[in-house]
Design a binder for these strands. Structure first.
Lengths: 215, 215
DNA sequence: ACCTGAACACCGTTCAAGT
DNA sequence: ACCTGAACACCGTTCAAGT
């Protein structure tokens, strides 16, 4: 699994190959199949390993701060393994992954007053935003050849100012900095400020809901 | 491109094949390459086509309501084409995609008082949450064989109550309903309530930030 | 200009055969 | 029990040859 994670970090999901993993381990593809099953199982195991890297705040931490801390360390772990982020965001796993983490998040939300359907709803709103946002930030860029960044940049800078006035007026703030106008992934160009705002939105939203539930 | 979208809707990204597309069109793979370039170009064109389906609110609509409307119609379009959602969320495109939509969202945020770096930050926080969340909701489930849902369900229901007390206590609200404890994708089991809460969190967060910027 | 047919260099996965 | 080697049924992409 260590070798698999190292391979994924180096070559990306598209070139993460059972054959490449086998040669890296000095064996043959069929050997991996004998030991772990198929490609999906390998990826699941690797995701679980990265989840183990996520640092958690002390259990005594206030529930909202605990969740904010989790979000930041989740993002940090994914920035260490950018190719894992989109895997978590958009693929299901062969097995139930990191149930202890799910359990802990749910327990913390419960401390915030969430229960029953509200617990499920709060969990989904928060976890989906976090996992989805980070997956989008670190989405794979540039399986399109070496000159792709340059041509993309040219397209962005070539957007006609009369057709796209707001883009044109704010171009220095937007080019390579916002979704759909950037040519580098969040691994190369982290969206720190945007994440800070997004996280603030999520946590404050949970706080408001918590007050509604308790009041 | 119509044929490509139909194929993706039917078979999913993994089995979306240039060869399958060619036979569906009654030609040969090389013909597609001659006309449109490579697989990435086809997928980009198809994403742009789905973006055209997104219904927008009237320009006179209040900026926050306009964004809420956009979020709901974005999600509706993705639910019509579930396999496109994760494509948008975690893959870059060959070309700049739907710049008119980016332009319009930025212009609306500007009406809310966002400018300069705050414009970029607000855009990323909102768009990343929306696109990421929907991508996670509709993430591919079940490339693991036909009996995968049943085994996954068994694993979820088999989580030991002493180790996972919160999960056990709320199982009816959680099983097949929350991220990482579900065995059906959002296409089969929409997370409507969770989306409503998440959207409320995002929009209210933008509103608060807007007041800070204007005050 | 556009299509056909074949080929290249790969994949995931399986399986008989070995030790 | 575990590994080797070969095979099956595919891929994306390219390219010479046709019309």
């Amino acid at each position: 699994v260590n070798a698999a994670l190292a391979l994924l970090d180096e070559v990306g999901l598209e070139r993460f190959t059972m054959r490449a993993l086998a040669t890296r381990l000095g064996t043959y593809p069929a050997t991996i199949y004998w030991h772990v099953g198929n490609r999906g199982e390998v990826l699941s195991a690797l995701v679980e390993m990265v989840f183990d890297e996520i640092e958690l705040a002390a259990p005594s931490t206030a529930w909202d701060e605990w969740l904010a801390y989790l979000a930041r360390s989740y993002r940090a772990a994914m920035h260490r393994h950018p190719n894992v982020a989109s895997l978590v965001a958009t693929r299901a796993y062969a097995r139930v992954t990191a149930p202890w983490l799910t359990e802990t998040i749910l327990a913390v939300l419960q401390r915030g007053g969430f229960a029953g359907d509200d617990l499920a709803t709060g969990f989904n709103a928060f976890v989906g935003s976090l996992v989805g946002w980070v997956g989008a930030e670190l989405s794979n860029i540039g399986d399109f050849g070496d000159d792709w960044p340059a041509t993309y940049e040219a397209q962005v800078r070539g957007l006609a100012p009369d057709e796209f006035p707001t883009i044109a007026a704010h171009l220095p703030h937007l080019a390579d900095r916002v979704f759909s106008l950037r040519w580098r992934s969040g691994a190369a160009q982290p969206m720190d400020q945007s994440f800070a705002l997004a996280l603030d939105m999520w946590i404050d939203g949970l706080r408001r809901r918590s007050r509604q539930l308790e009041g």
